[in-house]
Design a protein around this nucleic acid. Structure first.
Lengths: 151, 151
DNA sequence: TTAGGTGCAAATCTTTTGCAGAAAG
DNA sequence: CTTTCTGCAAAAGATTTGCACCTAA
């Protein structure tokens, strides 16, 4: 974790930004919860637990800054709040979600499933994909099994 | 268009809702602009032109109702406003967008490009896709050509 | 007739911004 | 030192809601 923070500190400094305690606390929260899709409010509450003096506006500003640096990605599931995902080390970290409309669980699908599609976009339309977002809404296996047992 | 309105009128009545002039005007606007991704505000302004007495709250309520009936789909591109897309007659109307991060144009890609992916989700994960959303962010052919000419 | 709808204004909720004081480099 | 940050409170936008009055079926 220290290594990751140092790396991001470097990225910040390269652009003339400072690594303040508030930013570091926010980063730690994001790193500790990289599996989740935290909203700004979520992050705020978690950061407040380790750095009680932080303000919500600072969290918003930090998340905006980290989005600009591509450390996190701002995503939107349509529930009225923006959520933030830590991006991995690769250029090709994407977000593919399987969202069950029955039980609400959200899981992720593999990156490489989309590569053939991106190749087709390039060769047939000349479109160079930089990033993408894919959400599937449907019924997960679990719920499907439950439904069948009911009938 | 009348046929479509009648069909939706029926759907409304089946659920105990009424087809008011305001709802009909809103529907006409949506049908006339089915290629666009209108925000509630957009719809409001367009409806106001043909039915000046309508209120913004009614438009929001109507769009919510039509979303519930799956006549439209509420989508979110992350620009701070919800947008509404008319759904086609098929169960499989989806939204796939190619968004150019340079010029901002948004175009659509073909439905069937995703079918292989959905089949894989079903056979390998048991996930039944009801709907999905796919956005590619990148550089469109036009902008790419422009960029190359500059260099 | 009557359940459902409407317009308006006020309320709510998320996110942004102005500003005076604080602090990292 | 000086430029960047911060917290706070106020502002800004989008969306929702309460309410008294309408109206489609």
């Amino acid at each position: 974790m220290e290594a990751q923070i140092n790396k991001i500190k470097q990225q910040l400094q390269d652009k003339g930004y400072k690594l303040t305690p508030q930013r570091e606390a926010t980063l730690r929260i994001l790193l500790e919860n990289e599996e989740d899709h935290l909203s700004a409010e979520d992050v705020f509450l978690l950061v407040k637990a380790i750095a009680p003096e932080i303000g919500l506006a600072t969290v918003y500003r930090t998340l905006e800054l980290l989005t600009e640096l591509h450390v996190v990605e701002k995503i939107n599931f349509g529930d009225g709040v923006a959520r933030y995902d830590l991006r991995g080390d690769t250029n090709h970290h994407h977000h593919h979600h399987l969202i069950c409309i029955q039980c609400g669980t959200m899981s992720e699908i593999k990156d490489d499933w989309l590569l053939p599609l991106e190749e087709r976009l390039l060769s047939q339309l000349g479109f160079v994909t930089v990033d993408h977002r894919l959400d599937f809404h449907g019924i997960c296996r679990n719920c499907r099994d439950l439904n069948e047992n009911k009938q």
